[in-house]
Design a binder for these strands. Structure first.
Lengths: 232, 232
DNA sequence: CAGTGGTCTAGACCACAAA
DNA sequence: TTGTGGTCTAGACCACTGA
């Protein structure tokens, strides 16, 4: 007996929903019936249902029944979606191009946001992100250099979060600020946009689980080509 | 017997943790002991522990025991913050002024977003939101009229959500899209802003728990005076 | 009213952790 | 080995929903 029964029942019901044996909005059989069908006690069956409810796949209504919750895809995207997620959700292919990668002294705002000393060096990366070869976003990422001095440029620029976690760091709170700005000449050149059109601006500070900031990102998106989506 | 036992036990243990009877990192008594102490079966006791675990207050370690988890404060502010929350967090006073309130035919986009028929009438409200008397945001809210035809104008314009819930409706999923735009003459007049400067745009569709959209909002914020904040 | 989910019991055996 | 949490049973009574 590898897996517990309630996990196996969970998986079976999930598969049934994916195969449209139970469709969105359908009422699934009552707990007592399912318990008989799977040959388990009602408590065990309820444990399976509970995990599906926690995942937002099922919805229980007292006195009425247990129903397949609406949507399925959207469930995951509670909270802000990343550039990659939004682009892929639109059926486009995300890509990015690193345009600068340098180590140097922090600016005033970098020093403040990252909570570091003026002497501490920072790694600064600049990137353009594309959806199907259309430039969408210009992004500057700053990291205290001593946190990543033993990590390769390739790992930093492509799998920063995974690499940090492999090296024993734990990602904590992420705070984002979103506003807007007008496209200047530099933006226009980098993003192939028109001066004077609207951009979305985003600032993000990512902390480690001990509360120390480790990444400060500023990004500017062409509003004509992009929007952020949230759900709750 | 008002509350279920497992809820009462949940609350009791939570209070004990708040009173430092059990401190962060402490192991609390074993399930079987607590079950005896509270005079319930072990399954019921486990249900109480489970809810505390889901809240991140307790942490169970197989074969070892159940421990008081670290953190506590961070819980609340996950996700997008509302205008009122952001303004108050900045130490300013939010207010709003209703500038139009009319019943009429839906526009094409209103019809689509709200999933209604062309003949169905809609209630459309237009509002300016202020922080300390500075105009921040221009907002248009559209609601299928038949949902609110028995509700007073005052309730609709000031306590829409609460009033709906009192009338037996249940709020469901909320989806928001955020992008940017350039301030036009109308925006400039309403928001006392300059034509050509940057605005944040927000579209929001709020559904009832049955998945039917009941509110479609479009809002434009002066970027110089406002930003959205998220945390996770 | 009958059927549903919500709660609860008093046991049981298991796998895992720590001594 | 002892104690822990993880799983599971075969019942029970309750409150709620909907016909």
């Amino acid at each position: 007996m590898e897996e517990p029964m309630y996990i196996r029942i969970h998986n079976q019901i999930k598969r049934d929903i994916e195969k449209h044996v139970y469709k969105v909005g359908d009422r699934i059989p009552a707990e007592r019936q399912l318990a008989v069908k799977f040959g388990v006690s009602r408590m065990t069956l309820r444990q399976a249902i509970k995990t599906l409810e926690d995942e937002g796949i099922l919805e229980r209504r007292l006195g009425s029944g247990t129903y397949v919750a609406s949507q399925k895809v959207q469930e995951k995207m509670s909270g802000i979606m990343s550039f990659t997620e939004i682009t892929e959700a639109n059926g486009q292919t995300p890509s990015s191009k690193l345009i600068t990668y340098q180590i140097g002294k922090p600016s005033l705002s970098e020093k403040e946001r990252l909570g570091i000393k003026p002497d501490d060096e920072v790694l600064r990366m600049e990137r353009i992100r594309f959806a199907d070869d259309t430039p969408i976003c210009h992004e500057v990422v700053t990291i205290p250099y001593k946190l990543v001095e033993n990590i390769s440029k390739d790992d930093i620029s492509t799998h920063l979060y995974e690499t940090l976690e492999k090296n024993g760091y734990q990602i904590g709170r992420v705070t984002e600020h979103i506003s807007a700005a007008v496209c200047n000449e530099n933006d226009a050149r980098l993003l192939k946009a028109k001066k004077g059109e609207a951009l979305i601006t985003r600032r993000q500070v990512t902390e480690l689980s001990d509360g120390k900031p480790f990444e400060y990102t500023r990004a500017r998106y062409v509003a004509e080509r992009f929007e952020f989506t949230f759900s709750k």
